[in-house]
Design a protein around this nucleic acid. Structure first.
Length: 108
DNA sequence: TCCTTGACGGAGA
DNA sequence: ATCTCCGCCAAGG
């Protein structure tokens, strides 16, 4: 059974709330959306987003601090470009999560 | 219907 | 740091 509409809306809201200059992992987004262990479901949703989506999908990366696309793919280049435009720094092909990980709801 | 493939992730070894 | 293995689960062959 696929995710219900409510769950998808929650995921979109979470992703939309990630501030520029910060990143969240698929698993973290799933967790915040009330869908523990559903990281893949979030990844699937990102993949289904229309190319002109206004959602900051590029701020969602994997738990290793890496972009989940092959290094030579244009998907990788696009996402990296958007992140660097946000001011997110890469060390090799990794992002230091100690610095850039979004703290979810802990900040207000 | 079974099998494989993923924008995943954690636990081990 | 690398490599399996194992949950998880929708899609496509």
């Amino acid at each position: 059974m696929a995710l219900d509409e409510l769950s998808r809306q929650k995921v979109w809201q979470i992703v939309a709330a990630i501030p520029a200059g910060k990143v969240a992992s698929y698993g973290q987004v799933a967790e915040l959306a009330g869908l523990p262990r559903q990281a893949r479901a979030v990844g699937r949703m990102m993949g289904q987003l229309p190319k002109d989506s206004r959602l900051p999908w590029f701020r969602v990366i994997n738990a290793q601090g890496r972009i989940s696309f092959a290094l030579d793919s244009d998907g990788y280049k696009r996402q990296r470009q958007r992140l660097e435009a946000d001011g997110v720094e890469f060390i090799g092909e990794r992002i230091n999560l100690k610095v850039y990980r979004w703290d979810g709801l802990a900040e207000n």
